[in-house]
């Protein structure tokens, strides 16, 4: 009896406390920028796809929900022919972002991904690719890598000497 009255009293006191409930969706919650929500594929500052299809995100993924296939353009630049994330399996752990050597895959504060059909949670590359660099504006992997691609020959990356001439014996 005493316990019930005490409970009623406690609940009554809550009427005068500050409200924690947010009137979602009318009222938007404040999500920190490093929130691990919907995954996107970003572009480098030149507007080209950042993903080089290295498969590291897929390897890091605990529920194995990322699958892709690498291909190359005619100049040797590697990119994914397809890139698929099955969000019905994704646990939003962020390991893919951590594994990504090119800042291509990033998690965003968007969490509004509810669907009535599970297969609508299977995102292909066109669903994932955004038009900007995301959280890391400056980075361009191919400017650092030694691989030659269209528009960047050997020795033209950052911190690279011009290509050596194997026929020269000059010091």
């Amino acid at each position: 009896m005493w316990s019930s009255l005490k409970t009623l009293w406690t609940i009554f006191l809550h009427i005068f406390r500050r409200r924690e409930t947010i009137q979602y969706p009318e009222q938007r919650p404040s999500i920190p920028p490093r929130w691990r929500g919907r995954i996107v594929l970003t572009r480098d500052p030149d507007g080209a796809e950042r993903c080089v299809a290295c498969y590291l995100c897929a390897a890091a993924c605990p529920p194995d929900c990322i699958s892709l296939q690498a291909t190359e353009d005619e100049h040797g630049r590697r990119y994914p022919a397809f890139f698929r994330i099955n969000f019905s399996r994704c646990i939003f752990c962020g390991y893919c972002e951590e594994a990504c050597p090119t800042y291509a895959i990033q998690l965003t504060p968007d969490f509004e991904m509810g669907e009535y059909q599970r297969h609508n949670l299977v995102y292909e590359k066109e669903d994932l690719l955004i038009n900007g660099p995301g959280k890391y504006p400056g980075y361009n992997f191919y400017r650092v890598a030694g691989l030659a691609i269209g528009g960047k020959g050997k020795g033209e990356a950052e911190n690279e000497a011009p290509p050596t001439d194997p026929r020269s014996l000059m010091p």
Binding site: A59, D64, C65, I66, S67
Partner: peptide
């Protein structure tokens, strides 16, 4: 470390 088990047939 075989990857993509839950995505490779998802389409």
């Amino acid at each position: 470390r075989y990857s993509g088990r839950t995505a490779m047939h998802a389409q």
